[in-house]
Amino acid sequence: MIFVIRRLGELVLVLVSISLVSFAVLRLTGDPAIAILGPDATDEALARVRAELGLDRPVIVQYLDFLGKALTGDFGNSTRFRQPVLELFMERLPATLELTLAALVISVLLGGTVGILAAVFRNSFLDTLVRAATLFGQAIPSFFLGIVAIIVFAAQLRWLPAGGRGTFAHLLMPSLALGTYYAAITARFVRGAMLDVLNADFVRTARAKGVAERGVVVRHAFRNALIGVVTLIGLQIGNLLSGAVVIETVFSWPGIGRMAVQAIYTRDFPLVQVTIILSATIFVVINMVTDLLYRIIDPRMRVAT
């Protein structure tokens, strides 16, 4: 319980620092009054607009005001689209979630399967192959993998579309490009965890009892290896979300990452701000939920804390 409270306190701290950084993003980008009226505006006109926008108040008051509005979902309007930025964010969020989820499935299914096989057939040719693949998978930047995939499967073979969103074919390359790095990490982790468990005493007991090898692997080893995998998956969701920024740019995927990068180019700061605050919040909350879940799944951890 003490742990939960401490973790919640930390969550609040992280969220406050995120809000500070994002507030600074908007405040340090020049005088909004000049941005509205142009460089030729008179001093009186500028002062009037500043008063209207509340910019003549102390910075701390402005920050608290910003925080209060943010808590009620008011993040201001996009300077480019003249629309509430929260609406724009929500419009684009499903696309990013779709991509992140698909990449997660690849990471877990591909990485998990390959990792288990490598552990069960330890030191075989398959194991060597898997270990080599995981080394490469962790060394290739996702965006480069994505471009290579476009060159091969879209430009040369013309099997898959080079960008955009819609059908399953559109999802295939972006999710593979994003998921490969994490599949490599999952494979490496699962292989290690399975090897540890396969050598544990209780597995030897199960074998001695005469449980078939298949049962040993599936029922005894895999279930215990799964505990660590849950944490790994939770950490990966957060990282996949921020990794999506790059992959969305490569594949013109209409998600929040691409929107944020374009907003930076067009200096649409309220839009940048909402993307950063909300994605960072999602990231932090997912990390915390994972951490708590881990402690619920594994009773040993409950005693330890």
């Binding site: 930390e10 992280v14 620092s17 995120i18 950084v21 994002s22 993003v25 957060g238 990282n239 979300l241 921020s242 990794g243 920024v245 790059v246 944020a260 990068v261 930076i264 700061f269 940048v272 950063i276 994605s279 960072a280 990231f283 932090v284 990390n287 915390m288």
Partner: peptide
């Protein structure tokens, strides 16, 4: 706990 890439993007923005 901080999403690094996002933080870097925010500051550079």
């Amino acid at each position: 706990a901080f999403p690094l890439l996002l933080l870097i993007i925010a500051v550079i923005a």
